[in-house]
Amino acid sequence: MGHHQKEVSMSEVQRHDNRLGIWGWLGGGRWGIERYAYILHRLTGLGILCYFLMHVVVTSLRATGVYLWVEGGVLHQPAFKVGEFLVFAAFAYHACNGVRLVLVELGFAVGKPIEPVYPYKTSLNVQRPLLIAMMILAAVFLAAGGYQFLGLAK
């Protein structure tokens, strides 16, 4: 062999950072429904939090006699009603999915360890009925809230 090649250790070789970043949260391939449930859980959580921090301040004003949300108040506009319904919807989803997550993350709805036999059945298969049930429940709450929001309830 004629040429001499300098020994290069793994730590010295140049790398390219291949992390997906935030795109890895939102998009990066074709996923299962549980991943979309996780994304929506995060989005609804952040949405509820933003509303909640303002809500605490606004409702605390009642101690000084200022009621912004009653008839005639600044927050009684239809636009705010829509926003309120969105928060209600976010809570309906977040709560129902949250119940599923409490059960799953405490190991109750994931099934027992089994010998893997192809085609593999994973904990995702075991908790799928719970996911479907929770989504139906969230839809029911959404319908009930929407019914009132549209002014149909008396």
């Binding site: 209600f88 809570f91 993350e105 405490l106 309830a153």
Partner: peptide
């Protein structure tokens, strides 16, 4: 965090029943 979530389920659920499902 989990325990708080369960507590919120009931407390905020009641709040929602009063405020947003109060029509029924």
């Amino acid at each position: 965090h989990m325990a708080a979530g369960v507590a919120i389920l009931f407390l905020l659920g009641l709040h929602m029943l009063i405020m947003h499902l109060g029509g029924t």
